[in-house]
Amino acid sequence: MTDAELFAKLQEVDARVVQLPNCRPLAVEVPVGFLLAFMGKLKSRPDLRFIQLLDHLAMDWPEKNEFELVYQLYSIEHDLLLAVHTRISRESPYALTMSRLWPIAQYQEREVFDLFGILYEGHPDLRRLFLEDDWVGFPLRKDYKDYFMLEMPE
């Protein structure tokens, strides 16, 4: 299936998807409010069947005042890769958990919470993953300051 065919199918699922330019694999952006319903359809539709969540990550865009969440999906039956992007505000970084659809999302979301401080509503066990429980700040944010960190000299 080519990217154009896949995108046409995704528009059948939800007309509000937007294709992101110059991405590989095909990346679409969905408003955060419809994300959970959209993902549920992606997983259950027989011609898509994205049953594996490969990866979940976040990106920090301080100048746009946004966090960008990325979900990498894989359909084993149809051998399709898809990246679903969504944007949330930096002031109130709330997103819905995907752990009801894919159990692994629980742990990938814990990683993102640990490093970016994104709060997942409905998450069964939202805790720090890599850092200690009393760690202050979220290190992968672009404005993270740490007196311990050494900057590379020029």
Binding site: L20, N22, C23, R24, P25, L54, V70, L81, A83, H85
Partner: peptide
């Protein structure tokens, strides 16, 4: 790197 996201396995 051009603007855009790339995911390779």
């Amino acid at each position: 790197l051009p603007a855009g996201s790339f995911y390779l396995q």
